[in-house]
Amino acid sequence: MSHQTLRRLVYFATIADVGSIRGAAAQLGLSVPVVSEALSQLEAELDVSLATRTTPRFELTAAGLRTQAAAQKILQTAYDLTDTLSDNQPLSGTLGITLPVELAGFWLPAKIRTFGKLHPDIQFDIDVTDTVLDLHAGPIELAIRTDYIAADAQARMPADLQLVVVTRQDIAVGPDGAVRCPLIDSRADRALVATPKVSGDPIPLQFDNTMRVTNRSAALAMARAGLGAVMVMRGSVAAELATGQLVELLPQHMFGAVDLHVHFRDRLPGRAAKAFAASLTPDHQ
Protein backbone atom coordinates (compact mmCIF):
# COMPACT_ATOMS: atom_id res chain seq x y z
CA MET A 1 0.00 0.00 0.00
CA SER A 2 1.38 3.37 -1.00
CA HIS A 3 1.91 6.21 1.44
CA GLN A 4 -0.68 8.26 -0.47
CA THR A 5 -3.31 5.53 -0.13
CA LEU A 6 -2.67 5.17 3.60
CA ARG A 7 -2.97 8.94 4.03
CA ARG A 8 -6.26 8.94 2.11
CA LEU A 9 -7.56 6.11 4.31
CA VAL A 10 -6.70 8.15 7.40
CA TYR A 11 -8.65 11.08 5.99
CA PHE A 12 -11.56 8.84 4.99
CA ALA A 13 -11.71 7.17 8.42
CA THR A 14 -11.89 10.62 10.00
CA ILE A 15 -14.63 11.71 7.58
CA ALA A 16 -16.61 8.56 8.36
CA ASP A 17 -16.26 9.02 12.12
CA VAL A 18 -17.12 12.73 12.10
CA GLY A 19 -19.84 12.46 9.49
CA SER A 20 -18.76 15.38 7.34
CA ILE A 21 -15.85 16.57 5.23
CA ARG A 22 -15.84 19.95 6.93
CA GLY A 23 -15.73 18.41 10.42
CA ALA A 24 -12.96 16.03 9.38
CA ALA A 25 -10.95 18.90 7.95
CA ALA A 26 -11.25 20.80 11.22
CA GLN A 27 -10.12 17.77 13.22
CA LEU A 28 -7.22 17.03 10.89
CA GLY A 29 -6.14 20.65 10.73
CA LEU A 30 -6.50 20.73 6.95
CA SER A 31 -8.55 22.71 4.47
CA VAL A 32 -11.89 21.38 3.21
CA PRO A 33 -10.69 21.19 -0.41
CA VAL A 34 -7.68 19.07 0.58
CA VAL A 35 -9.82 16.54 2.46
CA SER A 36 -12.49 16.52 -0.24
CA GLU A 37 -9.88 15.90 -2.94
CA ALA A 38 -8.35 13.05 -0.92
CA LEU A 39 -11.78 11.42 -0.70
CA SER A 40 -12.28 11.77 -4.46
CA GLN A 41 -8.83 10.31 -5.13
CA LEU A 42 -9.54 7.33 -2.85
CA GLU A 43 -12.84 6.72 -4.65
CA ALA A 44 -11.06 6.84 -8.01
CA GLU A 45 -8.36 4.48 -6.77
CA LEU A 46 -10.91 1.97 -5.43
CA ASP A 47 -13.32 2.60 -8.32
CA VAL A 48 -16.32 2.93 -5.97
CA SER A 49 -18.47 5.69 -4.52
CA LEU A 50 -17.81 5.89 -0.79
CA ALA A 51 -20.30 8.55 0.27
CA THR A 52 -23.41 10.39 -0.86
CA ARG A 53 -22.90 14.14 -0.92
CA THR A 54 -26.13 15.23 -2.61
CA THR A 55 -28.31 15.07 0.50
CA PRO A 56 -28.27 17.44 3.48
CA ARG A 57 -26.86 14.59 5.55
CA PHE A 58 -23.49 13.07 4.62
CA GLU A 59 -23.99 9.31 4.31
CA LEU A 60 -21.69 6.42 3.54
CA THR A 61 -22.62 4.07 0.76
CA ALA A 62 -22.53 0.30 1.23
CA ALA A 63 -19.02 0.34 -0.25
CA GLY A 64 -18.16 3.21 2.08
CA LEU A 65 -19.23 1.21 5.13
CA ARG A 66 -17.10 -1.75 4.03
CA THR A 67 -14.15 0.54 3.36
CA GLN A 68 -14.62 2.20 6.75
CA ALA A 69 -14.40 -1.17 8.51
CA ALA A 70 -11.31 -2.14 6.51
CA ALA A 71 -9.68 1.26 7.11
CA GLN A 72 -10.24 0.97 10.85
CA LYS A 73 -8.53 -2.43 10.91
CA ILE A 74 -5.55 -1.09 8.97
CA LEU A 75 -5.26 2.00 11.15
CA GLN A 76 -5.72 0.01 14.35
CA THR A 77 -2.80 -2.20 13.32
CA ALA A 78 -0.71 0.88 12.68
CA TYR A 79 -1.66 2.41 16.04
CA ASP A 80 -0.99 -0.86 17.88
CA LEU A 81 2.45 -1.06 16.28
CA THR A 82 3.16 2.54 17.22
CA ASP A 83 2.05 1.90 20.81
CA THR A 84 4.25 -1.22 21.01
CA LEU A 85 7.30 0.62 19.74
CA SER A 86 6.67 3.62 21.98
CA ASP A 87 5.73 1.82 25.21
CA ASN A 88 9.03 2.86 26.74
CA GLN A 89 8.82 6.43 25.45
CA PRO A 90 7.52 9.05 27.92
CA LEU A 91 4.22 10.72 27.17
CA SER A 92 4.46 14.34 26.16
CA GLY A 93 2.45 17.11 24.55
CA THR A 94 -0.89 18.69 25.41
CA LEU A 95 -3.99 16.73 26.35
CA GLY A 96 -7.29 18.52 25.93
CA ILE A 97 -10.09 17.37 28.24
CA THR A 98 -13.52 18.64 29.23
CA LEU A 99 -15.55 17.87 32.35
CA PRO A 100 -18.46 19.28 34.39
CA VAL A 101 -18.00 22.26 36.69
CA GLU A 102 -18.65 20.35 39.90
CA LEU A 103 -16.05 17.65 39.17
CA ALA A 104 -13.43 20.24 38.33
CA GLY A 105 -13.72 21.86 41.74
CA PHE A 106 -12.87 18.95 44.02
CA TRP A 107 -12.25 15.76 42.00
CA LEU A 108 -9.98 16.75 39.13
CA PRO A 109 -7.01 18.30 41.01
CA ALA A 110 -6.03 15.00 42.65
CA LYS A 111 -6.32 13.17 39.31
CA ILE A 112 -4.12 15.71 37.57
CA ARG A 113 -1.57 15.62 40.40
CA THR A 114 -1.33 11.81 40.35
CA PHE A 115 -1.13 11.62 36.57
CA GLY A 116 1.44 14.43 36.48
CA LYS A 117 3.79 12.53 38.76
CA LEU A 118 3.82 9.62 36.29
CA HIS A 119 3.84 11.76 33.14
CA PRO A 120 5.45 15.12 33.96
CA ASP A 121 5.78 16.13 30.29
CA ILE A 122 2.02 16.16 29.68
CA GLN A 123 0.36 19.57 29.71
CA PHE A 124 -3.41 19.86 30.17
CA ASP A 125 -5.86 22.06 28.31
CA ILE A 126 -9.02 21.85 30.43
CA ASP A 127 -12.46 23.03 29.34
CA VAL A 128 -14.77 23.17 32.37
CA THR A 129 -18.41 23.24 31.32
CA ASP A 130 -21.72 21.49 31.90
CA THR A 131 -22.60 22.03 28.24
CA VAL A 132 -22.40 19.21 25.72
CA LEU A 133 -19.53 19.93 23.33
CA ASP A 134 -18.83 18.75 19.79
CA LEU A 135 -15.53 16.94 20.26
CA HIS A 136 -14.90 16.85 16.52
CA ALA A 137 -14.87 20.64 16.28
CA GLY A 138 -11.93 21.42 18.54
CA PRO A 139 -8.75 20.26 20.27
CA ILE A 140 -10.45 18.34 23.10
CA GLU A 141 -9.53 14.66 22.94
CA LEU A 142 -11.39 13.34 25.96
CA ALA A 143 -14.70 14.26 27.57
CA ILE A 144 -15.72 13.21 31.08
CA ARG A 145 -19.45 13.31 31.67
CA THR A 146 -21.71 12.20 34.50
CA ASP A 147 -24.99 10.34 34.95
CA TYR A 148 -27.19 10.00 38.01
CA ILE A 149 -27.67 6.46 39.35
CA ALA A 150 -30.04 5.39 42.10
CA ALA A 151 -28.85 4.28 45.53
CA ASP A 152 -29.36 0.59 44.69
CA ALA A 153 -27.69 0.75 41.25
CA GLN A 154 -24.08 -0.07 40.43
CA ALA A 155 -21.83 2.44 38.72
CA ARG A 156 -20.06 1.45 35.51
CA MET A 157 -16.98 3.44 36.60
CA PRO A 158 -17.02 3.41 40.42
CA ALA A 159 -15.56 6.65 41.71
CA ASP A 160 -17.19 7.01 45.15
CA LEU A 161 -19.13 10.11 44.08
CA GLN A 162 -22.01 9.83 46.51
CA LEU A 163 -24.80 12.40 46.34
CA VAL A 164 -26.21 14.37 49.26
CA VAL A 165 -28.97 16.95 49.56
CA VAL A 166 -27.82 20.05 51.43
CA THR A 167 -29.33 23.28 52.70
CA ARG A 168 -28.03 26.31 54.53
CA GLN A 169 -29.95 25.45 57.68
CA ASP A 170 -31.54 22.35 59.13
CA ILE A 171 -34.95 21.63 57.61
CA ALA A 172 -37.27 18.99 59.00
CA VAL A 173 -38.69 16.34 56.68
CA GLY A 174 -42.28 15.31 57.37
CA PRO A 175 -43.30 11.66 57.74
CA ASP A 176 -44.83 11.86 54.26
CA GLY A 177 -41.57 13.19 52.80
CA ALA A 178 -42.69 16.82 52.71
CA VAL A 179 -39.78 19.30 52.69
CA ARG A 180 -40.69 22.91 53.43
CA CYS A 181 -38.36 24.54 50.94
CA PRO A 182 -37.75 24.58 47.19
CA LEU A 183 -35.51 22.11 45.42
CA ILE A 184 -32.88 23.88 43.31
CA ASP A 185 -32.18 21.64 40.34
CA SER A 186 -31.45 21.61 36.62
CA ARG A 187 -34.57 19.51 36.03
CA ALA A 188 -38.07 20.60 36.88
CA ASP A 189 -39.27 16.99 37.17
CA ARG A 190 -36.57 15.64 39.49
CA ALA A 191 -38.05 13.01 41.82
CA LEU A 192 -35.75 12.51 44.81
CA VAL A 193 -36.01 9.36 46.89
CA ALA A 194 -34.20 9.01 50.21
CA THR A 195 -33.09 5.41 50.80
CA PRO A 196 -32.22 4.40 54.40
CA LYS A 197 -28.61 3.37 54.86
CA VAL A 198 -29.50 0.59 57.31
CA SER A 199 -33.15 -0.45 57.06
CA GLY A 200 -36.56 0.97 56.37
CA ASP A 201 -38.64 2.07 53.42
CA PRO A 202 -37.48 4.63 50.87
CA ILE A 203 -38.99 8.10 51.26
CA PRO A 204 -40.11 9.98 48.14
CA LEU A 205 -39.42 13.63 48.91
CA GLN A 206 -41.95 16.36 48.13
CA PHE A 207 -40.52 19.86 47.95
CA ASP A 208 -42.60 23.03 47.95
CA ASN A 209 -41.55 23.62 44.36
CA THR A 210 -38.57 23.35 42.06
CA MET A 211 -36.40 26.32 41.23
CA ARG A 212 -34.84 25.37 37.92
CA VAL A 213 -31.19 26.45 37.61
CA THR A 214 -29.21 24.93 34.75
CA ASN A 215 -25.74 25.58 36.16
CA ARG A 216 -24.76 23.33 39.07
CA SER A 217 -22.36 25.84 40.62
CA ALA A 218 -25.04 28.54 40.54
CA ALA A 219 -27.55 26.13 42.09
CA LEU A 220 -25.14 25.40 44.95
CA ALA A 221 -24.48 29.10 45.45
CA MET A 222 -28.23 29.70 45.76
CA ALA A 223 -28.51 26.93 48.34
CA ARG A 224 -25.65 28.54 50.27
CA ALA A 225 -27.68 31.74 50.23
CA GLY A 226 -30.58 29.96 51.92
CA LEU A 227 -32.89 29.78 48.90
CA GLY A 228 -33.53 26.04 49.02
CA ALA A 229 -32.01 22.56 48.90
CA VAL A 230 -29.69 21.18 46.24
CA MET A 231 -28.38 17.69 45.47
CA VAL A 232 -24.60 17.67 44.96
CA MET A 233 -21.64 15.31 45.21
CA ARG A 234 -20.56 14.93 48.81
CA GLY A 235 -16.95 15.67 47.97
CA SER A 236 -17.80 19.11 46.63
CA VAL A 237 -19.27 20.24 49.98
CA ALA A 238 -17.30 18.10 52.45
CA ALA A 239 -15.57 21.09 54.06
CA GLU A 240 -18.81 23.06 54.45
CA LEU A 241 -20.59 20.07 55.99
CA ALA A 242 -17.72 19.62 58.44
CA THR A 243 -17.87 23.26 59.56
CA GLY A 244 -21.67 23.49 59.63
CA GLN A 245 -21.90 26.06 56.83
CA LEU A 246 -24.18 23.60 55.07
CA VAL A 247 -26.47 20.99 56.59
CA GLU A 248 -27.17 17.56 55.16
CA LEU A 249 -30.83 16.72 54.63
CA LEU A 250 -31.59 13.24 56.04
CA PRO A 251 -27.97 12.24 56.80
CA GLN A 252 -29.03 8.65 57.57
CA HIS A 253 -30.30 8.22 54.02
CA MET A 254 -28.73 7.86 50.56
CA PHE A 255 -29.67 9.70 47.40
CA GLY A 256 -27.70 7.72 44.86
CA ALA A 257 -24.40 8.52 43.23
CA VAL A 258 -22.76 9.88 40.11
CA ASP A 259 -21.44 7.55 37.43
CA LEU A 260 -18.63 8.70 35.16
CA HIS A 261 -18.45 8.22 31.41
CA VAL A 262 -15.38 8.83 29.27
CA HIS A 263 -15.81 9.75 25.61
CA PHE A 264 -12.89 9.96 23.18
CA ARG A 265 -12.86 12.35 20.26
CA ASP A 266 -11.29 9.73 18.02
CA ARG A 267 -12.17 6.10 17.60
CA LEU A 268 -8.45 5.41 17.93
CA PRO A 269 -7.39 7.81 20.70
CA GLY A 270 -3.83 8.87 21.35
CA ARG A 271 -1.59 7.37 24.03
CA ALA A 272 -2.01 10.28 26.43
CA ALA A 273 -5.82 10.23 26.21
CA LYS A 274 -5.93 6.47 26.75
CA ALA A 275 -3.49 6.65 29.66
CA PHE A 276 -5.43 9.41 31.42
CA ALA A 277 -8.74 7.57 30.95
CA ALA A 278 -7.18 4.41 32.37
CA SER A 279 -5.92 6.37 35.40
CA LEU A 280 -9.53 7.22 36.35
CA THR A 281 -10.50 3.63 37.10
CA PRO A 282 -10.23 2.23 40.66
CA ASP A 283 -7.47 -0.21 39.64
CA HIS A 284 -5.20 2.74 38.87
CA GLN A 285 -5.83 4.81 41.99
Rank of each mutant, 00 (worst) to 15 (best):
V213S: 00
F255S: 01
V230A: 07
M254A: 13
V128Y: 01
A151S: 15
A25I: 07
A151P: 10
V213C: 04
L30D: 06
A278E: 03
L30C: 12
G244E: 02
I15C: 10
V237R: 06
G93A: 07
A188L: 12
V230M: 02
A24Y: 07
V193Y: 05
R145K: 04
V213R: 03
R187Q: 14
Q206D: 10
D130F: 03
D201F: 06
L241M: 06
L246R: 00
S49T: 15
A150F: 07
R224V: 06
R190S: 09
L133G: 02
D185I: 02
A273I: 08
V173D: 02
V247L: 03
T52M: 14
T52K: 11
I97E: 12
S20V: 02
L50Y: 04
A38Y: 05
D201W: 07
L99F: 03
F276P: 02
S31K: 12
T67L: 10
G226P: 08
F106P: 03
A238D: 10
I97W: 02
R271C: 04
Y79E: 15
T195R: 07
D176L: 05
L9F: 12
S92E: 14
D283N: 08
P282Q: 11
A229E: 01
K73G: 04
T214R: 12
L50P: 00
A150I: 02
D152W: 05
Q123F: 06
V232W: 00
M157C: 07
D283E: 11
L205K: 00
A104Q: 06
T167N: 08
P33F: 03
A71S: 15
Q169C: 11
L42M: 05
A229H: 00
P175V: 14
E43Y: 10
A275G: 08
S36D: 13
F124I: 05
A155L: 08
R156D: 14
A25V: 09
R267F: 15
M231W: 00
L81C: 12
R57F: 10
I126L: 11
V232N: 00
Q76C: 10
S36E: 11
S92T: 14
K197N: 05
G256R: 01
P139H: 14
R66F: 10
C181Y: 03
D83R: 11
V258T: 12
D87P: 01
H136E: 09
P139F: 08
G96L: 10
E248A: 08
L241Y: 03
A110M: 07
Q162A: 13
G19D: 06
H284W: 04
I203F: 02
Q206C: 07
N88V: 13
L118I: 08
S40M: 10
Q154W: 06
R113P: 01
I97F: 05
M211L: 14
I184H: 09
V34D: 05
Q76W: 09
I126K: 07
A110S: 11
L28C: 09
S186A: 15
K117R: 15
Q4T: 15
I97R: 03
